[in-house]
């Protein structure tokens, strides 16, 4: 089940001088409950791919199936699909518009046709999940700090109770603590609600820490698809397409080439420290 891509192609501005084949024959299935890290150099097609996931862009050819049904079927409601596949764009705080945080978060649930009480209760629940303190709920979203605005905007999507949550660089521009705490919140929401998460990020450390599966895009095609360890062990191939590996992987691979440590690809700080200590003791 989940969300299945079958030979999806997308071309921007076909037939003009600025034509660009952004997705080339993409096939894969996003399984329920996965935490997918989507990585690729700027212009690799990540943003086009996620916009296909929630139906904002339509495939030129190929098909996308949600729980076995084509989202392009006439009988399939695209509007409902937007609610099932929630999308948090980069810098989502730029889409806040209401007079209070709570009203803004209610916008999505309200559009779903829920009663006002139901919408408000969902909004409050979402605001709790993103850990935005209650004192801000009745404040104008525009007076919040950058990190708080970000949380309010994410709550606006969580409140629609999506089955799949797509996030494009949710931590962009935040300081290290803000970064960690927002990613922790998302991870917790995933566990609590059992949802699927798609994280688009340039930060390999974050992807390595949270993702259960990593999909690498290059020039509109799938370049790699596997567990974080599988993908990040192919460090050299990642460099070839303008990407890198997590900081810890880079260090441990360098040490291994000097004969220190022999285990598989390392993506966590604890494992790496253990490996190096063990190897040094052994001599």
């Amino acid at each position: 089940m989940g969300l299945e891509f079958r030979n999806v192609n997308h071309t921007y501005n076909p037939g003009t001088t600025v034509e660009r084949h952004a997705l080339k024959d993409i096939s894969f299935t996003l399984e329920d409950g996965e935490y997918l890290g989507l990585i690729g150099h700027t212009g690799s097609g990540k943003s086009t791919l996620i916009q296909h996931m929630n139906g904002l862009l339509k495939a030129d050819s190929g098909d996308i199936l949600y729980d076995g049904q084509s989202i392009y079927d006439k009988s399939y409601s695209m509007n409902q699909h937007h609610f099932k596949v929630g999308m948090v764009f980069q810098y989502p705080e730029h889409q806040l518009f209401e007079t209070t945080v709570l009203k803004d978060v209610c916008f999505g649930p309200g559009n779903m046709g829920l009663s006002e009480d139901e919408a408000v209760s969902r909004a409050k629940e979402a605001l709790k999940l993103v850990e935005l303190p209650e004192i801000y709920w009745d404040k104008s979203p525009f007076i919040l700090s950058g990190g708080q605005k970000r949380r309010a905007a994410i709550a606006g999507v969580i409140a629609m109770d999506p089955k799949i949550l797509i996030m494009d660089e949710p931590a962009a521009g935040l300081d290290p603590e803000g970064r960690d705490s927002i990613l922790e919140s998302i991870s917790m929401i995933r566990k609590e609600r059992g949802i699927t998460v798609v994280l688009v990020s340039h930060n390999m450390d974050d992807v390595a820490k949270y993702a259960t599966r990593v999909l690498v895009l290059n020039k509109g095609s799938i370049y790699m698809d596997g567990t974080p360890k599988e993908v990040f062990s192919r460090t050299k191939e990642l460099y070839d397409v303008g990407l890198s590996a997590p900081g810890i992987t880079v260090i441990t691979e360098r040490l291994k080439s000097l004969g220190i440590g022999e285990e598989d690809c390392m993506i966590s700080m604890d494992d790496a420290a253990d490996m190096i200590a063990k190897s040094l003791r052994k001599g």
């Binding site: 300081d175 290290p176 960690d180 260090i251 700080m269 200590a277 040094l280």
Partner: peptide, 20 residues
């Protein structure tokens, strides 16, 4: 101060904690 040292610096600290 809500900041984080680079990965290499943090790994160095962990190793020191392990007696390296």
């Amino acid at each position: 101060y809500k900041l984080k040292v680079p990965v290499a610096a943090e790994l160095a600290v962990r190793l020191r904690e392990k007696g390296i």
